[in-house]
Simulated scan of single mutants.
Amino acid sequence: MSEFTHFNVDGRAHMVDISHKQPTERTAIAKSSVFVTKEIYEKMTSHAIKKGDVLSVAQVAGIMAAKKTSEWIPMCHPISLKAVDISFEWHVSESTYELEIRAMVKTVGSTGVEMEALTAASATALTVYDMIKAIDKGIVIGKTYLLEKTGGKSGDFRREEK
Rank of each mutant, 00 (worst) to 15 (best):
F7E: 01
D10K: 14
R12D: 12
R12W: 03
A13G: 14
V16I: 15
I18N: 08
P23F: 03
T24V: 13
S33E: 03
V34R: 01
F35H: 15
T37P: 02
Y41N: 00
T45D: 01
V57T: 14
Q59W: 00
V60L: 13
A66C: 14
K67W: 10
S70M: 05
S70E: 09
P74E: 06
M75V: 15
C76F: 06
H77A: 12
H77R: 08
P78S: 13
L81H: 09
A83K: 15
D85A: 13
I86G: 07
E89R: 12
V92W: 01
E94V: 03
S95V: 02
T96A: 03
T96M: 00
L99I: 02
L99M: 05
V105F: 04
K106E: 09
T107L: 10
T107M: 04
G112I: 08
M115P: 00
L118T: 12
L118V: 12
L118K: 10
T119E: 06
A120N: 07
L126S: 09
T127M: 11
T127P: 01
D130R: 04
K137Q: 10
G138L: 02
I139M: 06
V140H: 09
I141R: 08
G142V: 04
G151M: 09
G151I: 08
G151V: 09
R158Q: 09
R159E: 13
R159C: 05
E161V: 14
